[in-house]
């Protein structure tokens, strides 16, 4: 079970990122738990400087842009 976090205060790109991650998880029936984090303190503690950002099991995979579905699949595969 992978733990995926999508960091973002609520801008358009952050919503898009969350949607995309959830879509990939659903379509591949992946064993992952997706959580949206909009708390700034938690973001900072995770070392996230720019949003949207995605972490998998505590490791920040990407920050500052919307990931492609292929990228997400690669992180979760």
């Amino acid at each position: 079970m992978k733990n995926v976090k999508v960091y973002g205060p609520g801008c358009q790109k952050c919503h898009l990122t969350e949607e995309r991650v959830r879509k990939v998880v659903k379509e591949g029936s992946l064993d992952a738990n997706v959580e949206k984090v909009s708390d700034f303190a938690e973001m900072a503690a995770a070392g996230v400087l720019s949003t949207p950002a995605v972490s998998v099991d505590g490791v920040v995979k990407m920050a500052g842009r919307v990931p492609t579905e292929d990228e997400i699949r690669a992180w979760l595969g």
């Binding site: 801008c11 900072a44 996230v48 400087l49 720019s50 949003t51």
Partner: peptide, 17 residues
Amino acid sequence: TPFCSCSAVPMFIGFVT
């Protein structure tokens, strides 16, 4: 540096801390 105003807060915190 890439910047958008929605990242202003995380960046501020990240810099200051």
